[in-house]
Nucleic acid binder design. Structure first.
Length: 820
DNA sequence: GACTGAACTATACC
DNA sequence: ACGGGTATAGTTCAGTC
């Protein structure tokens, strides 16, 4: 039969020694289908140059006879073919060595110690990735699949009968379709439990939200009572069984949660184990599977589990304004709506009339998660399509893995044999290599400037890699005449001018980004936006990839040369800008801000055009914006202009603040708000008078204890386990207090505390001895907040206007040595 | 006990 | 282990006098 098919979840199994991909997806009628398919498995033996044909034939014969006995399983090399291929851009003769089972590739490769063989490659790619590369059955793309329906047969040990799908096909022919749209069935869920530690408390309720479906299942406090959307069951065991039942009824393509890899699913599994309940959630009746690793990952066969936090964390967080990645903040940023309020208590302490609020709270979390999934879906979809890896993995992978996957799935266009992963020892060596020189940052002269503009290089490092052909395969060990060359740490390095596959791939990525960005401008939609964004992120990550020690195509020289060429590019652009009558104030990495002086906006734009016409390769500068005013300050010590710290305002009054305490989450709200207001007033008015009045008012309020303690809270993240701290800082003290009171926290938690007044007998000068947790009774320490929060936040700003802020803080002129 | 620079720590910029 | 280097700034630590 023939059917349309969109692959969603990939798995594989062995049958009679061979590997088979088992792919679950949907057809055009939204039926759930499983496709069984196989592909050749092989790896490459790259031969030494000048190996004679006779020697190759002899080698081929020798390899074909290899037989293996792996853990009792007999297997052998199936066939050996000779191919002309490329490796690292170089033409090579390679033997393609076919095996029955991909798990044997490594063992066979180990047997190839023959002197004619230079390298063995392609045995370290997972079967699913290998299958996708071979058969080009890309995840979340539409296909027409032709094959035999194997329901109610004994084929593959009757596998089709054990799967909860509409039908199962042994694929014979697969054709790609142009169709793109796909709206999956999604189920969001969230649990509430009594203890934070996995499995240590009871699960009180589980909420589930899908298309036209909202439900809270609970076994608490609902005898003879009814609540909207709440379904009551007898006990926790029944709750878990009902959870599994509903998943079966809804039959979603995706099940999604927020931190569900690390909390909800492990919790559910732990409680199910305790009650000895089998949670057969998978479409093959299997339970939740957890993979070990630094972070646990929860998988359900046939239903893709997406932990939205993981996707946001690995891909999106750096482009977001949320200070934490809590569901509340992230939902606020993306949906304009946060969590419902509910004060957590142990279930035994929740009063009868508070339960309804708890149910609503729980349900709302699932609603937010469901809507967040909808919002993120275009990004998940496009990321998956571009990386060509299953969405389960793409949603969890970091950007270096994404870049690596993109390369792996595009190598065939270049006829390239894949490079291997670095070994443990190689990673060690790479990590030992010292840092290389990175970006250029221009020291600004502190001051308030008027009429500014800023230019940026678009996809700067990516453009540099493309323009100067910087990669592992184009790096020249020996100098060559016609090559790109630069100096890194006093040593000249050379890169071939023959385009390498990595820069070429990147060129395509940057071009696609431009193309989709333009299309987006003409006719905006979520998919185009996601696509343009995915290519942008991919381009930006490619530089980090080449400098990342775990990368297959790691090349420190290329990474260092990228930074070197970028430094040169910005220096030249700055120089030309100054020569054209503008005044460069500040520069960082790939962009710079300058004073227009007497030039008009139009003249500035004309100059930008001229600059661009003179840039090499695909290098391109773009206008960031025009600004009415800009402020640069000195460092705290006052000796130099501070880098990475400035504030700009547009004609429309839009602020752009970088580096100041205002944008740092480890400063109290009082100092941040005050600084933000001061910056706004100064940039709007062009003088400090109104700001000074405001500061005096706030200082007075602080001294009169009129400030809400909430505004004094300091939040600092625990970056590692408590025991590993060498220095006992205020947030470590706060964490120790939390530990004593059994308040849960872990590496990654934000620790909240304030600095309090201490009793007179306490003579300690250490700030940590004044730390109190936010709910601890006490008064904020006036001296600390004035001298350590307010003063540092405004001192250097007012210094620009020659105002000594100490006068305002103390109400008198400070005694200086000279004055004395 | 006061002072000082180094070490440790967190967070931001691009 | 799961992108890179550059930069500011606070608090504690350890040594000196």
């Amino acid at each position: 039969m023939k059917t349309e098919f969109i692959p969603i979840d990939y798995d594989y199994f062995d049958f009679e020694g061979r590997n088979y991909a088992k792919i679950v997806g949907r057809n055009e009628k939204n039926k759930r289908i499983c496709i069984i398919d196989s592909c050749d498995v092989y790896f490459w033996a790259i031969l030494k140059e000048k190996t004679s044909e006779k020697a190759i034939k002899r080698l081929q014969g020798k390899i074909e006879k290899i037989k293996l006995d792996v853990k009792g399983r007999q297997t052998k090399v199936e066939k050996v073919e000779m191919h002309k291929k490329k490796f690292m851009g170089r033409e090579v003769v390679a033997l393609k060595i076919f095996a029955t089972n991909y798990k044997d590739l490594h063992d066979i490769a180990d047997k190839l110690g023959m002197p004619e063989i230079e390298k063995r490659r392609g045995y370290d790619i997972g079967f699913i990735s290998h299958y996708i590369i071979e058969k080009k059955l890309n995840p979340l793309c539409w296909y027409e699949v032709e094959g035999e329906v194997i329901d109610n047969t004994t084929k593959f040990n009757g596998i089709a009968n054990s799967l909860d799908v509409d039908f199962c096909i042994k694929a014979e022919n697969i054709v790609s379709l142009k169709k793109e749209e796909f709206l999956p069935k999604v189920l969001a869920f969230d649990i509430e439990a009594d203890e934070f530690k996995i499995g240590e408390g009871e699960i009180l309720m589980i909420s589930l939200v899908s298309d036209n479906f909202k439900k809270v299942i609970t076994w608490k406090k609902c005898k003879n009572r009814e609540f909207p959307n709440v379904e009551c069951v007898g006990d926790e065991a029944e709750l878990l069984s009902r959870f599994a039942e509903i998943i079966k009824e809804i039959s979603p393509d995706f099940i999604t949660g927020y931190f569900s890899d690390g909390f909800d699913l492990p919790y559910i599994k732990a409680r199910a184990d305790k009650h000895k309940i089998r949670l057969d959630l998978g479409i093959d009746g299997s339970s939740i599977k957890f993979s070990r690793g630094v972070t646990t990952t929860a998988r359900i066969n046939g239903i893709v589990h997406i932990d939205l936090l993981r996707f946001i964390q690995s891909v999106y967080s750096q482009y977001m304004s949320s200070e934490t990645l809590s569901l509340n903040e992230v939902a606020n940023e993306f949906l304009g709506e946060g969590k419902k309020e509910f004060e957590f208590k142990h279930s035994s302490k929740i009063s009868r009339d508070e339960w309804e609020k708890y149910f609503e709270y729980n349900l709302h979390d699932s609603v937010l998660t469901y809507r967040l999934f909808e919002k993120m879906w275009p990004d998940l979809l496009e990321f998956t399509r571009i990386m060509s890896e299953p969405v389960f993995d793409v949603s969890r992978n970091g950007m270096s893995t994404n870049v690596g996957d993109y390369i792996l799935h595009n190598l065939s266009k270049f006829d390239e044999i894949p490079e291997k992963r670095p070994t443990y020892d190689e990673i060690g060596e790479r990590r030992q290599r010292g840092k290389y020189e990175g970006a250029f940052v221009l020291e600004p002269k502190a001051g308030l400037y008027e009429n500014l503009s800023a230019f940026d290089f678009t996809s700067s490092y990516g453009s540099v890699i493309v323009t100067y052909n910087l990669s592992k395969s184009t790096f020249l060990e020996k100098p060559e005449k016609d090559s790109y060359s630069t100096e890194i740490s006093g040593k000249k390095v050379y890169f071939s001018k023959t385009p390498g596959f990595f820069p070429q791939m990147l060129k395509e990525i940057i071009e696609k980004r431009r193309q989709y960005k333009e299309e987006l401008k003409k006719k905006p939609d979520a998919i185009k936006k996601a696509r343009s964004n995915a290519f942008k992120l991919l381009a930006n990550a490619s530089y980090g990839y080449q400098g990342f020690f775990g990368a297959r195509y790691y090349c420190e020289e290329a990474a260092a040369a990228t930074a070197a060429f970028a430094r040169q590019a910005i220096r030249e652009a700055m120089e030309k800008t100054n020569n054209a009558g503008f005044g460069v104030i500040y520069a960082d990495t790939d962009g710079f801000a300058f004073s227009l002086n007497k030039n008009s906006k139009q003249k500035t734009l004309d100059f930008l055009k001229k600059l661009n016409s003179e840039l090499p390769g695909v290098m391109e500068l773009e206008l960031e914006d025009f600004y009415k005013r800009g402020l640069w300050v000195t460092t705290r010590k006052g000796e130099f202009g501070a880098k990475k710290k400035y504030a700009l305002i547009t004609e429309e009054g839009k602020l752009k603040i970088r580096g100041f305490e205002t944008v740092r989450r480890d400063w109290c709200v009082l100092a941040r708000e005050l600084q933000n207001n001061v910056l706004l007033m100064i940039l709007k008015d062009g003088d400090e008078k109104r700001a000074l009045e405001h500061i005096k008012k706030v200082v007075k309020e602080v001294k009169e204890r009129k400030i809400d303690l909430k505004k004094m809270t300091i939040r600092t993240q625990m970056k590692k386990p408590l025991s590993e701290y060498k220095s006992i800082t205020p947030h470590v003290v706060a964490a120790r207090k939390m530990q004593e009171r059994e308040i849960p926290f872990s590496a990654g938690s934000l620790i909240e505390y304030y600095i309090a007044e201490t009793k007179k007998e306490s003579k300690s000068k250490l700030i940590r001895d004044k730390v109190k947790l936010v709910d601890e009774k006490g008064e904020y320490n006036i001296e600390y907040y004035l001298k350590h929060q307010i003063l540092p936040a405004i001192e250097n700003i007012l210094q620009v206007f020659n105002v000594d802020i100490n006068v305002i803080l103390d109400g008198k002129k400070q005694m200086t040595l000279e004055g004395f």
